[in-house]
Design a protein around this nucleic acid. Structure first.
Lengths: 219, 219
DNA sequence: GTCTATATTCCGATAGAC
DNA sequence: GTCTATCGGAATATAGAC
């Protein structure tokens, strides 16, 4: 399904280059503050050329978000399907998120993007409002199943905690820590803070930031 | 020091009306996506009229943030100074924040403002970057002292927890919950989630959302 | 598939009348 | 203190050449 870059048409390569550039710039400066001209310029074409591939700024944003999500989901599924250990998504999702944040803390990439765009998109009527709403709901559900698994797997098992509430708190913590980290990286160790939270819950998450998962090939 | 509205000059009233309007609009749509013309229009003047009071868009943003902060700080100080109970800021700051979020959850007002602008301001070079950086540092310090107090006052006292780390987590949680709440209010009870977090730490925060504090008169 | 050229709208900011 | 008028620039988007 996923072709190697060498086999792609010139148009498809340009399209991917635009998406990659858009991701970088939106991550740096949000959505409203960025112009198509700037994205096009950094991608090596004019803004009119860019509009050959996307109908407008909104389309570029949503396409980028959706493709990014799909790549991430496929990476998780293929890791699980590889069968080297865990055999379902809920057995790995909490660890995956920890590792994801650890990787982003050492090499900032797309994490700022989601925080900036999600807050910007909270205005109803924003082009990505529905997308983010659905994304948070899905993530919360997946993570809730992950917490239910971790609670049962913990030694001793954790009882009396609501997995859904913990999922909500975990996501909120990850988002909020991102803001503090971007403003003041030296004072904020996101991974340590998240592991500490899991520790409070009764989950021993030692070493979860280092679990080996395949690098995903970004768009 | 603070005059009643009736005694203000016409210019001062206009100035405050502009600040109030700016707060509303920035809270709705962030900074980059808002024009001075729109703020001015909703305040009942032209954008040229607005620029009689502020040197530019950046000035409007920073003045608004700083005055908002000052009003909040003064409200806390005057409550403490009233001497009806707690005699220092650290004895009330955690409860104050809970009540503040409870009030904002029932009557959304300025809470979205800080989440949206702070993420937008994480780009270095943003006009409010330094402001937010300093704000988070100060808030974290104040809240850390608050947690140290609450840990000592808890029954039984909480031991072995780092107040600074808890302050960081509490702020992150509040910010992150705000995003989920704005996207999906029905699924997110911010106050319940924060009280649950305090409960995990060993702090019984029952009823903290209902503590009586004087309404602050907003700008 | 990408360009130039352009239409249209809106931006922040200034000058100066009243 | 607030206005009209306007500047210079940049935005999204379209039309059509190559």
């Amino acid at each position: 399904m996923t072709q190697t870059p060498e086999r792609l048409t010139k148009g498809e390569r340009t399209r991917r280059r635009i998406l990659h550039t858009a991701l970088e710039i939106f991550a740096e400066r949000g959505y409203a503050g960025v112009s198509l001209r700037e994205v096009a310029s950094r991608a090596g074409i004019t803004h009119a050329g860019l509009l050959h591939y996307f109908t407008g700024k909104d389309d570029l944003l949503l396409t980028m978000m959706i493709e990014r999500d799909r790549a991430e989901i496929e990476a998780i599924r293929s890791y699980v399907a590889a069968g080297t250990g865990p055999s379902s998504v809920e057995q790995i999702i909490v660890r995956w998120m920890i590792r994801d944040i650890a990787r982003n803390q050492s090499r900032p990439d797309i994490a700022p993007l989601f925080v900036k765009l999600s807050t910007e998109a909270t205005e109803s009527g924003h082009p990505a409002y529905d997308y983010f709403r659905g994304r948070y709901i899905r993530l919360r559900e997946t993570l809730a199943r992950g917490f239910a698994y971790e609670f049962a797997a913990a030694e001793p098992p954790v009882e009396g905690r609501d997995p859904g509430l913990c999922a909500q708190q975990f996501i909120a913590l990850a988002d909020g820590l991102q803001v503090q980290w971007l403003l003041d990286p030296e004072s904020t160790d996101m991974v340590a803070s998240l592991l500490d939270y899991l520790g409070i819950l009764g989950i021993d998450a030692e070493g979860w930031a280092d679990i080996a998962v395949p690098e995903d090939r970004s768009a």
